[in-house]
Amino acid sequence: MSLYASRRGANSAATTLCWVAAVFGLSWLALILGSLVYEGVRGLSPAVFTEMTPPPGSKGGLLNAIAGSLVMTIIGVAIGTPLGMLAGTYMAEYGRYSKLTMIVRFINDILLSAPSIVIGLFVYTVLVHPMGHFSGISGAVALALLVVPVVVRTTEDMLLLVPGSMREAASALGAPRAHVVAKVAYRAAKAGLITGVLLAVARVSGETAPLLFTALNNQFWSSDLTAPMASLPVVIFQFALSPYKDWQQLAWTGALLITVAVLALSIAARALSAGRRNSK
């Protein structure tokens, strides 16, 4: 009886602790989102989307930062996606069991969680330093390097899900290998491939560290890719650490914008892959 009681006791203690952990963990996360919305919405106004980042002590918006983020993200994704998709295609379609695939998979998984600031240092030494100045394009390249591992991973995973019998059917009809990949495998895995790109966009749109010393920042409107370019995360970083109330408010609002964008992208990706879990 006492053994029974102690087992029951241990069980209820453990389950209670798990409940406490869950409530504790989730409430911190809820608290962060709560204060983000509370502080961010206060600063939300049309001016945020129509005016440039202000000098200290005056009102303004985040237009140039938003535009800079969009431009660099788009270029980064445009460079990184084809590269990642081709590499993922090789791993799933051609060299499924080859040594190269195993090595690339391992390295790619490490790049996936490597510190992004190191990527920034890398781009600084190979692009910014030789060019002699910070530039929007080097920021975009840094983001592209972060896009690649995400896309490689999802492309490989999604192509591996395409049933082999579909490829065999196409091959039996005499379709060459490249056609089988492009017309059958890609088409079957389309939703998954788009999911990968969306996840990659979500991943890079909030990245700050690799932009700090590649694109730097720019207080004014700039469409010149060879000049320093503003981006939302870097502006948030700079404004949040400043002593000026207006800047801090803009930082909160910018943080809210990024979070909403990232959440929207992840939810869209999730809806696309409809019920399928691909969280790792």
Partner: peptide
Amino acid sequence: VFYQVTRAAAVVVLIILGGVIVSL
């Protein structure tokens, strides 16, 4: 060509990592 291009892309992933280490 398609085979070689995809293979090259896979190798580029390795080169990126190598490049990071070498440049650092």
